[in-house]
């Protein structure tokens, strides 16, 4: 009797997992099939995610008839610069806060904690005025500066916490042996915190790809558009007559992200549970 009950229970668990998998996979499959479906409109699509008259013309059109490649390039430039600037600046700032003693250190750290609570959208009008003052509106570099500045407070805390876990006695020993500040940092601190620095680099690389409000507000001309803004304009209000091309464009962004996440699954689980209260 008990065994039969267990069998019934697991039957339902499996049934539920399969139904949920279907719900998760259906929209993805529908978009993939849309990317290869002949014709432009949503109406011509099969309800089942199987493309009728498969074609790759939407991909070729994406590269020849729209500015897709240009958007991709802009987003890529922003992502790489944001990654480099954020990582370097945050590394320096966190290292100073972790290892140096100086006046006003505590109030500075406190203000970082408070600043990271405000979403940057609150100040977006002012950000526009400031960039305008320095002639940096409609300029990729202006946007990169805004992203990098916004990344400093939270990530400095994150990285400082990691730097703090390396005992100070180790760098004191190194200093006795004649190592300077730079040598200590590159030989001792950095190798020991590399995973966290890598995590910071990856998150600041992925962050700008799908950010919408700031690029939409700051980058006004067509040649400076990012992927998020371009895709938005491609599909907004036109979901019925431009669906297949959007699907092709979306697919080309999603694939690298999915690969990155699935490969790093185990790592993700560890990083995400790091914010929990320890037993």
């Amino acid at each position: 009797m008990k065994k039969a009950l267990t069998v019934v229970r697991y039957f339902f668990v499996y049934l539920m997992l399969i139904i949920l998998s279907f719900i998760v996979l259906y929209p993805i499959a529908f978009t993939i099939s849309g990317a290869f479906n002949k014709g432009k409109s949503l109406f011509q699509m099969n309800v089942l995610p199987i493309p009728s008259n498969p074609t790759t013309e939407h991909f070729t059109e994406l590269f020849t008839k729209t500015n897709y490649l240009n958007w991709y390039k802009n987003s890529f430039i922003i992502a790489v610069c944001n990654m480099l600037m954020t990582t370097v600046l945050v590394m320096i700032t966190a290292y100073i806060f972790s290892r140096y003693r100086f006046a006003l250190k505590k109030p500075m750290l406190m203000s970082f904690l408070i600043l990271q609570m405000f979403p940057s959208t609150i100040g977006m009008i002012a950000i526009y005025v400031i960039l305008n003052r320095f002639g940096l509106t409609d300029n990729l570099f202006g946007l990169i500066l805004v992203y990098t500045a916004g990344n400093i407070p939270y990530n400095t805390w994150l990285l400082k916490g990691y730097f703090d876990t390396i005992p100070k006695s180790i760098d004191e020993a190194a200093k006795v042996d004649g190592a300077g500040n730079l040598t200590t940092f590159f030989r001792i601190i950095l190798p020991n915190t590399l995973p966290m620095v890598a995590f910071l680099a990856v998150t600041s690389f992925t962050q700008p790809w799908m950010d919408f409000i700031l690029p939409r507000f700051i980058l006004r001309s067509d040649k400076n558009k990012t992927l998020a803004v371009g895709l938005f304009e491609m599909i907004n209000g036109r979901s019925n007559d431009n669906f297949t091309q959007f699907a092709a464009g979306a697919l080309l962004i999603a694939v690298p992200f999915v690969i990155l996440f699935v490969i790093n699954q185990k790592y993700l689980v560890r990083i995400m549970s790091a914010g929990a209260v320890k037993e």
Binding site: L20, S21, V24, L25, P27, I28, F30, T31, W209, M210, F212, A228, L231, F232, I235, S239, F246, A250, I253, A254, F257, V258, L260, F261, V262, Q265
Partner: peptide, 15 residues
């Protein structure tokens, strides 16, 4: 089940 997290949110929402 990780897939929705991996796909950029904006794309999923349009989808």
């Amino acid at each position: 089940f990780i897939l929705p997290y991996a796909i950029p949110g904006m794309i999923s929402l349009f989808m």
